[in-house]
Design a protein around this nucleic acid. Structure first.
Lengths: 180, 180, 180, 180
DNA sequence: CATGAATGAGCCTTCATTCAT
DNA sequence: TATGAATGAAGGCTCATTCAT
């Protein structure tokens, strides 16, 4: 049922997604949606929450503690690119549709996205100190942006495996573009 | 008049932006908007087109030919972050509001973004050979994404100057995150 | 529901008939009208179609085959005057409101009216030959016009029964006004 | 200026006729229309009044006193069909567009039509006695209706001369349809 | 005087949301 | 419990009408 909602939200965006269409896609009747998941706002929030959690779980599971930083980063990025490739709809809802308006769920959305940033910042930080995290937060923003940008290019190049995308991105953000 | 529209679209998003509110913000009456700029779709497209062009012009003007690659990159990024800082609303419309899918203007925003990608890919390529450009295109995607992501963080940190943002990003994508 | 629409269209005409008023007259809410009968255009067309069909059915049923021509005509006219008297609104919509041009349903209207003319022409023709019908078509126009004109007079003379109107009209168009 | 209005009203109908279009057709600017002829309603009424008067004058002039009844009738009908043929637009406005809704000009058009009825009733009455006129009034209604109906057919058959239309109608209402 | 420019008001249409079954 | 059926509320768009120039 949430899956159907994510699919429709992904294709149409929040406002153009009609509850009728979501209900039909889920194979249930509209009042069911309302009974189980509440109003449209809440439904959208539920989608965001679930997909964000799913992504976080994947990344967390892929990054065991105790590895070298660049290995952590590599594995985290691999989990990320894999998620984007395999759950296209989820990512679009999370990254594109959820940014839209300062509606009543802006806070919820921002929180979910924020948790991802924090997670990535944690990967980048040498130590879990508060100030260390603060220092790596802007880097995390840039990194997530770069990954998103590259994954968008990847959508037009399906022959490119997630591993290859990771290599490309590591070469940029870890090695640096500067000629040695 | 377009300015008012950009402001409202930036705050509300396309769908929640009421023509009434835009008209009021512009200090004219609704029929004026329709007379001069057409229906809501066209109005939104006009906003996108103008702001995208403005951004392109700034970047193009900021990057004279003949400089060293990393200097070109630095100047291009400076122009970009300056635009984001000085035209918050424009950037929010371009980056957050316009990327929702399903609308009739998906093509417009994709085209605008594509032009920037091409521009950046040109900056990154040593020579204007076809294959050289093809090689730098995914890098350009990552780079533009990183700049976008960092600018998102920058929106919440107005005390951070465009120059500082450039330094942060150059340290990531030019120098690389790897400890020396 | 169609009845309510016919009533309002009859009183106001197509353009001045507000969907609000039609909905109120029907005792339902506006979205119901849209759900069941579509937009205003389609609603109007549906009215025309139903009323035209109703009139045609009445006339057809009233005129069994095999009668003498003047008896056919008499019975057809009786059915007509009865319809106009009993379904005043229907007739006004059909005959007056439906004639305005320029609307997107001009074709539909013309077709419905045309079918009535063809039916009357059939009553007048001795044989169902193509050319015989073509010959009686202008006569049918005149006849329908005369009946309409007389029925308008009848509206101001409610004591005049449909039968009496038929007698009057037969004396004109069958016998002729010429003094014998 | 009225001519332009009649042309537009004829093509579009009252409601679809935009004041802009009328002004453009007249070659003046909109405020001129308002200055000289008042609001849209009044403009429409002015059109109706002028065209109805024109028709009345033509018929009146065509029917000198002292002729045999059937000759009077013939000449009146000829004037009428000639008017319809030569002033298509005027006739369409009078007959199709003006009869529409119970708007503010229903009275106007009814009055105009009433004057024609009275005129025709006078033609038909042997003597100008009150009761004689009352007897011929319903006949006049039928006759005017028949002429209107036949003229409707005539609009689609421009090759049919007014004289031919008169002959057709006289054969119906004077001679009668009954086989001799 | 003639007009370009501007607006108030109203109508069609849609959709999130909820009862009665 | 699950749903078909119904609606309140709101938004896009147009057009008759009028000033200021």
């Amino acid at each position: 049922m949430l899956d159907a909602a994510v699919g429709v939200f992904s294709r149409r965006g929040f406002h153009l997604a009609a509850m009728d269409e979501i209900a039909e896609a889920a194979g249930v009747s509209k009042p069911m949606i309302y009974a189980y998941l509440g109003a449209k706002d809440e439904l959208f929030i539920a989608c965001i929450r679930r997909e964000a959690q799913r992504l976080m779980d994947l990344i967390t599971a892929a990054v065991p503690a105790g590895l070298a930083p660049h290995e952590q980063l590599r594995r985290g990025l691999l989990a990320f690119f894999t998620f984007v490739a395999e759950h296209r709809d989820s990512w679009i809802v999370l990254y594109r549709q959820a940014r839209v308006q300062g509606g009543p769920f802006a806070g919820e959305i921002a929180a979910a996205r924020g948790r991802i940033i924090v997670l990535v910042a944690g990967l980048l930080a040498d130590s879990p100190h508060e100030e260390e995290l603060a220092r790596s937060t802007p880097v995390a923003h840039a990194l997530v942006g770069a990954a998103e940008g590259l994954s968008e290019w990847g959508l037009d190049h399906p022959e490119e495996s997630p591993e290859a995308l990771v290599n490309r991105l590591m070469k940029i953000v870890w090695t640096g573009l500067a000629p040695k």
